[in-house]
Nucleic acid binder design. Structure first.
Lengths: 199, 199
DNA sequence: GCATATATATGCACAAAGTGCAAAATTTCA
DNA sequence: TGAAATTTTGCACTTTGTGCATATATATGC
């Protein structure tokens, strides 16, 4: 029989459709957010544009802001995975720099700027974005601790996680402020350089 | 005439009543949040308990979560003021430690734990709380920069602000986790000691 | 004290978010 | 094919938050 090694992806019609619907919702949401603003776009409209009922929307996202947050969420997971790899042969800050540089390529600066601008338009969304930085910090700290589990490293790893996420924040803030004038990679390097010089 | 030295507070009936009403709203809100949970307590009930109409509630707070956030807000301003003073004769981390120790006395640990617990019950509120840490970091950074405006200090001051707010976060998290077993002052000193040792 | 300006409180109507429930419609799998 | 599981939908309902007009309370000049 043709290879039953590994768990077969088993991507049935159901899951495929579900993913496709989620994708359509996000797409429709972003389109409407950009066209008429985050607050003005109603879930009703988004659902209509994504060709589902309003009620079904809530089977995919708990609230309107989750559309925006879902974008950032994926990036966080990628970053965590990349960090775990880079930590094999690098010290924390070097690893974070490398991980960030590696994955930022996959996210067009223009998109990040758009999402950032949308988030600034609503206090609750902005808050959740900033909160996600803190969750990210916790996640990255735990990954670093996998690599150096000794308790005497805990404090410095926490510092490293704080500084790393702080650097990401500064770089993305700068990106947004400059409107994408300079590439993300450059900004990241700049911030991480300054960070290392300051320690 | 009985002393007209200094600008008279000019606390008219209006402002006094306004403050009193705000106080009643917060009190009623906290009472209901504790009794039946954050989400279950409706603004309608809170307004009734504070003896105002539902519509009037919104003249005082933009939303339900602002009741909880108003508690944290006051502390942030006090901290900023204390930091400004301590920076006269201390280095950033020392100053932050002193400022935090000074003002934490004014906030009973039990109250802080209750507020923290309530905030954990709702994702949006939790997010705003964490976001306020980031705003706090920005505010404290700016205060530090008043003292050392030279651009070559910018990065290290940013680091100091990040580390300081990080320390506050760790101390308050510990307080909440331990349920108040050890006093805030002790936790703060512990975290700041670890921080300084790690640098 | 009174008139008048100004700030605050309230009621009403309304849009939108979010939830529970039960009835279709669809997909899976034997 | 037919039963089981999952997804989609409609409907009714509660709650949040806002706009607007009106009433009420406070402040201020005369």
């Amino acid at each position: 029989m043709s290879t039953d090694r590994e768990a077969p992806p088993k991507e049935g019609l159901r899951e495929r459709k579900r993913r496709e619907t989620a994708r359509r919702i996000v797409e429709a949401g972003m389109r409407l957010f950009i066209d008429r603003g985050y607050e003005a776009a109603t879930i009703e409209e988004i659902a209509a544009a994504a060709d589902i009922s309003r009620r079904t929307f809530f089977h995919y996202f708990r609230s309107k802001d989750e559309i925006l947050l879902s974008m950032q969420g994926g990036m966080g997971e990628e970053l965590a995975a990349a960090l775990r790899e880079e930590l094999q042969d690098k010290r924390p800050l070097q690893a974070m720099r490398a991980a960030a540089l590696r994955i930022c390529g996959g996210y067009p600066a223009a998109d990040m700027i758009v999402v950032d601008r949308l988030m600034r338009a609503n206090a609750a969304v902005q808050a959740r974005k900033q909160a996600s930085y803190i969750q990210q910090e916790q996640a990255l700290f735990e990954i670093m601790r996998e690599r150096w589990p000794q308790p005497e490293h805990e404090v410095s790893l926490r510092l490293a996680a704080m500084a790393s996420v702080g650097a990401l924040r500064l770089a993305f803030d700068a990106l947004s402020r400059e409107g994408g004038a300079r590439p993300v990679a450059l900004l990241l390097n700049e911030v991480f350089d300054a960070l290392e010089a300051g320690i």
